[in-house]
Amino acid sequence: MEFKHVKVATGSADEEGRLVFHEEKLIAVLVRLDDAGHGAVVGQWSLEAGFNGVDSTKPPLFANLEAAERWIGKQLSDFIAL
């Protein structure tokens, strides 16, 4: 998986984002929760959008990008297994 820096307009202080590519296709958009309003989860990464099996109505938050990559990888393999 490849992670590219991007700024995301969320209407909040959460701007620092990553476009996540899998086999050269965009598979997910992650944003770091930097807004103080998030309280205890500030600093964690949030799935803002996901495609082709990475979409979830209630995704977990990720402590770091490695954790996000593991989760996205699992979503992809579960999706392919369907």
Binding site: T10, G11, S12, D14, L33, D35, G37, H38, S46, T57, K58, P59, L61
Partner: peptide, 18 residues
Amino acid sequence: LGDTVGLTTVSVNRALQR
């Protein structure tokens, strides 16, 4: 609130902020 309107807690937080 998120479980009511089908949003993540992060989205509810931003919606309330807005």
